[in-house]
Nucleic acid binder design. Sequence first.
DNA 1: TGTACATCAGTGAACGCGCGTTCACTGATGTAC
DNA 2: TGTACATCAGTGAACGCGCGTTCACTGATGTAC
Lengths: 219, 219
Amino acid sequence: MAKSGTTTPRERYRQQVRAEVKERAWEQIATAGASALSLNAIAKQMGMSGPALYRYFASRDELITELIRDAYSSLAGAFRDTAKSSKSGADLTALAHALRAWALEHPQRYFLVYGTPVPGYHAPDDVTALASDIMTTLLDACAALPGTGSSVPPLDEHLEGHREWAGDHDASPAALHRALSFWTRLHGVLSLELAGHFTGMGFDPALLFAAELDGLTAN
Amino acid sequence: MAKSGTTTPRERYRQQVRAEVKERAWEQIATAGASALSLNAIAKQMGMSGPALYRYFASRDELITELIRDAYSSLAGAFRDTAKSSKSGADLTALAHALRAWALEHPQRYFLVYGTPVPGYHAPDDVTALASDIMTTLLDACAALPGTGSSVPPLDEHLEGHREWAGDHDASPAALHRALSFWTRLHGVLSLELAGHFTGMGFDPALLFAAELDGLTAN
DNA sequence: TGTACATCAGTGAACGCGCGTTCACTGATGTAC
DNA sequence: TGTACATCAGTGAACGCGCGTTCACTGATGTAC
């Protein structure tokens, strides 16, 4: 029996069950929305009794937080991987396509991250850290771009004085600006596309996405 | 006693109660999210018993649909009013500011319209008609803009052949493109802003919004 | 290799809760003559 | 202006439901000697 590393069989089984619970949870979210998520329903679907799941998750809220964490984590991972395998080490186009692929593959995760916020909810620290991770990867790519000294709108001056969010990144105001536009514009297209606001309109959202991306890399 | 027009006092009272129910519903959505909306809770809050509300709404679903209708309707109204009171009869900047003002004033309505979709839900016809209304107003403004013959990316050619969504509007492909960009870019900023993804970043979202708007009207 | 003990997965019963919704009924408001 | 009837708002009891969660317990799996 393969007893890999320090991981005991019991622990492996534990992780396996946790993973299956999460899978079912995503299915349930896809079917009826995140608010319909129910531990009892998941348990029934897995052929076990409701209370059994409390061996694996302390509460419904913990499960949801875990799903949010995974969602952020998978996007951050996809971003980091893309940045690493890019030629110059940072490629806005590659990041954009990674973002779109991720969003289309996991619409529920996308909405858990970027969708309607739940009024009372505050993400734990490690999740906001993942969010910073994503921004950092994006900033790296923007900073590596051929400098555009041309754009000096009010926003750039403002960003010069308000760059807390960039951490210790030495990106130029223009790069900061570009990162924000990348984020908001692509999110604008993706969010409307995934929410179905383009259905019945006849055009191909992929082309709109591409056009927006063009506007970001060309300028 | 003012007995205005054909409206009977009873009918007026009816509409008054319906209005109050909706107000409480919006408050509840603001406090705990749309999924927490409960007829019983609203009734209690209004000092009546649960079943009483069934005199005013056939079901919880009907209430929600009504809220969605109102949300669309208020945005469509704001847009139409703005277009009418604009000098040239169509002013992208004015529309943009109307959109932002509306979104900031009623974040819950914004998210009911543009937020995470509920998997099973399909809006009734009159609601989708309001959505078309909004697009038409936007298209009018874009068509009235000084023509830009310069932009001929793949998207514009594609839009030439896929303009079902424009109805019988005679807007140029460039205008169609501009309308879509207006919609997606501003939505991108607003949605992230309202969802709180900018909090803690230090910069002023209004300036980012303004910068995006600039990019739309200048080009 | 075998026995004694500890750990832990899963069960079934039970709790309290709030929900949406139906129903038969009371009482107030409006309408017709 | 007054009486008889119809309309309709609101109540309280009741139904069934599924939820999250706790608890005492059984039985299987792993560990120590």
